[in-house]
Amino acid sequence: MNFLKKLVPQVALAEAQLLSRSSIHTSAVCCRVQSGRYRITTKRNRPLTYEMANPPHFIGHRKSWNSWNTSTLEDGLRPSQTAIEDVFIRKFMTGTWHALVCSEVIIKRQHNTIRIAALIRQAITPRKMYFLIGYTEELLSYWMQCPVTLELQTVGDKNDVIFKYI
């Protein structure tokens, strides 16, 4: 209901202006935003990572971007293609490293190289991990037509990345 509280003075002002002129009533715009925000549970047992604990309006203040590239700058080239590729890379990563990725997949582009960083759970043997690294790099670099590097960090337990419970 916080957003309504913020809107109250604006709505009052708009209504005052309208009433003076006509009797047409307009409702306030529905500016409810939900994406990237999590509800508090009654038992306070929903685990959140640092990324989840900070809603999107804190990007650039408390947390930073998950995709780093020059396409989103002003007059950047092929922004749509880059966004679609990023979505694909994220899907491929979470699918290939199934139930192993503990954080968001961070995609950093420098010139023609793509560097992908993520937190991975130590649930499989290092040998399998090395295979998956090579597999992911090879396939993604074939699809993206540019060198892809995986820069992973492993965590022993998935509870290591939990920042707080709500």
Partner: peptide, 23 residues
Amino acid sequence: QGFTERGAAAPSKFANAELMKIP
């Protein structure tokens, strides 16, 4: 790195995705 409530220590460098994000 990381923002915490007043008095709490900031998250350490292990399993910290924020440190991996910034160049």
